[in-house]
Design a protein around this nucleic acid. Structure first.
Lengths: 160, 160
DNA sequence: CGTCACACTGGGCAGATTGCCCAGTGAACA
DNA sequence: TGTTCACTGGGCAATCTGCCCAGTGTGACG
């Protein structure tokens, strides 16, 4: 579950140059190919690396508007709301949270006007009491993992 | 920028079986290998497919706690806050938003107790006036793109 | 102090895939 | 009608993959 420095370097290398291949990685890292292969297998079976799916940009698909909606759910309707939101393609992710809202979801839309349609569809469901939406203007830090991987690798090295 | 049905099938196939390779894709989709290759090249140069980086699970790295923090920023300090948050590895992404807060960031931590440390580090900066944190309990809909891709592909087909 | 398990090395092998090339075809379009 | 474009189907050398092996070093454990 914890990763060492070599694991970290493998992940970072893979993140920077995804098409790199095991052989080239082993050359860059100065280890045997079998080692890289074994590490990769382990990282994947550990679940540290979930997969290598394509990273699709919603904006390039025609959905340049992103928003976060905080939802308040009527007691006992959680499961129904989850099922409902799962059917909306513009709902990219959904979390249940502590705090003022009960759920937080990430939405995309074709435009600000289209966002209204999406929100209507999201909240047009019985179990949802209230929704507060925040439109994303800028994304100074896009979803990233490398700094965390490096920290995790360093911690591990420090401890062992 | 818009994608057609074949593009959609390529992306979905790739999302489901990332290791699949161009040749096998062409077999599954019933088109020539060159076609798949050309489509993929176009999707990547379009920016629709950003890349194929490894999808790393923070939980498996030892960071099982996720939270969203809404930050209020002192006027004119936005750039400084951005730069500060970019240096915190546990900040996985950062958005500037409309609405009650000025920024929304996704955090991870090793435990609920550790989350306190992360939040202290995040808000331990002059430009941040207030922070409201919501801890994620469940993630009923993990970050996904396939339904949106399918919708985008269908729309395109319908129009053209 | 042995013994064992484990990870890593360095090598080899056949088979598959990739990147690249080409000519031909059909459809859309000026 | 002529041109452009995407797609097809094929071929080629080079590369990589998955798989195997024996040898080595190290740490854990009896």
């Amino acid at each position: 579950m914890a990763i060492d420095h070599l694991d970290g370097r493998i992940i970072v290398l893979l993140a920077r140059e995804p098409r790199i291949g095991v052989l080239e990685m082993s050359r860059r890292l100065g280890v045997a190919r079998g080692t890289v292969q074994a590490r990769l297998d382990r990282l994947q079976s550990n679940g540290v690396i979930r997969g290598f799916g394509p990273q699709v940009d919603p904006a390039a698909l025609g959905y340049p508007v992103t928003a976060f909606a905080t939802l308040q759910i009527r007691q006992g309707q959680g499961a129904d709301v989850r099922a409902h939101l799962a059917t909306v393609p513009e709902v990219l992710e959904l979390h249940t949270t502590t705090g003022t809202g009960d759920m937080l979801c990430r939405l995309v839309a074709r435009s600000n006007a289209d966002l209204q349609r999406v929100i209507d569809r999201v909240v047009g469901f019985d179990g949802i009491v209230r929704a507060a939406t925040a439109i994303v203007m800028e994304n100074p830090v896009p979803l990233r993992i490398i700094p965390l991987v490096e920290q995790a690798a360093d911690n591990r090295d420090g401890r062992e």
